[in-house]
Design a protein around this nucleic acid. Structure first.
Lengths: 223, 223
DNA sequence: GTCTATACCGAGATAGAC
DNA sequence: GTCTATCTCGGTATAGAC
């Protein structure tokens, strides 16, 4: 168990310095992310954010140029490292399954221990806005890295042959599921949750055609 | 393969009669669902919907009392049958894995062949709005039925022991993933997609502690 | 059943005092 | 760095003619 965790792939520790410049800015990001998650970006008003922070609405604009800048700061926080790590993982050598597993554990652990609620950002389609093209592109490179990794696993016979695009979408949504769950049950251990999440994905990718699964599905289980 | 599909659990065929009363109403629902998916409910304006349909904004209100009524019609269309089927499935007898599988296939097939884009409705948190409490409750009963089914599978030793709440969230998000994928690749066969999706979930639920998976993850695969 | 005209409100953002 | 006051715009919805 320790052996797996040891293959640490984490980048430089999460940019908390960039994240904690002054306290109000930090609190704005936390409250905004929580509100974005619950109501969506567009449906969250700057007045709501200000109220949650305990300041008046115009005071927000002292810390961020506009509402969108808050959103972009959140994307930066959650995406900048992930892309680097994903690309490094895809270009490394060794078992693709093992690498994908390690990446998933790292990603989930990172996201789950961030005091931010980010699931809404990625599940909704705000990123289609032209002004956010830069972040859409960043997410796209992350996706490409993941698809590459999946393709390697399929070629090596480690994963069942499925469209890597579907797999990538599945991975993203399973990640979101875990963030949602951690949001509902904050008492759960992020590390264990991260491990289980990675396992769930790997199981789905590797065992979709096992005989045991066929038995289970048909209801003629023997075990 | 046919044997599985035969255990049909579908309710009365999807309420297309309710859905096609007059053509404009129908087109409003289709265009609105597509816009909601891309931009979210709140971020979609009634002007956009009207433009997509090819009428002027105030004409919408001849067909629906207000914007929210459009949303509720979409919830009704996607949820009414699902709840009935889920509860029937949870209360039936036999292998829980087989029943969950059948439900997932039915649910995915239904959603994927609906000419509506519904993923955003369930991934965002619109349902927290007090005015939509009725639909939130309906979704909640669907969730309870699924959790019950999962619990049966765990007790029977068919599924790995995990919090049924997490499983339920995972199922919801894997479903969303498939809808998103079908949205990107409309050429894919809904039936095959539905089967694969169900398999993915079942694999994750049943094989999370298999030895084969451990080998794969640790990179010491023999096969 | 669709139109034009319009009421009304809440959104994001700015100006300038303290 | 936060405030009050205020501008402007785009949103939902209504009135009433055709």
């Amino acid at each position: 168990m320790a052996s797996k965790a040891d293959r640490t792939i984490g980048a430089s520790d999460q940019n908390w310095d960039q994240f904690a410049p002054n306290d109000t800015r930090r609190r704005i990001l936390m409250e905004a992310s929580a509100l974005f998650r619950r109501h969506g970006y567009q449906a969250t008003s700057t007045r709501q954010i200000a109220a949650a922070v305990g300041i008046r609405q115009p005071s927000l604009f002292h810390h961020f140029a506009n509402k969108q800048a808050i959103l972009e700061a959140l994307f930066s926080l959650s995406l900048d490292n992930a892309v680097v790590v994903a690309e490094r993982t895809a270009n490394a050598s060794g078992s693709a399954a093992a690498r994908l597993h390690d990446y998933l554990v790292w990603d989930l652990e990172t996201l789950l221990s961030l005091p931010l609620s980010l699931s809404e950002l990625y599940s909704s389609d705000i990123l289609r806005a032209p002004e956010l093209a830069h972040w859409a592109a960043k997410l796209e490179s992350l996706y490409l890295a993941l698809e590459k990794l999946v393709r390697q696993g399929i070629e090596a016979g480690e994963f069942v042959a499925t469209d890597p695009v579907l797999i990538r979408i599945l991975i993203a949504n399973v990640t979101i599921a875990h963030i949602q769950y951690a949001d509902e049950r904050p008492d759960r251990d992020p590390k264990k949750l991260a491990r289980d999440g990675a396992r769930f994905v790997l199981a789905g990718l590797s065992n979709m055609e096992s005989a045991h699964l066929d038995e289970l599905i048909s209801g003629t289980r023997s075990r």
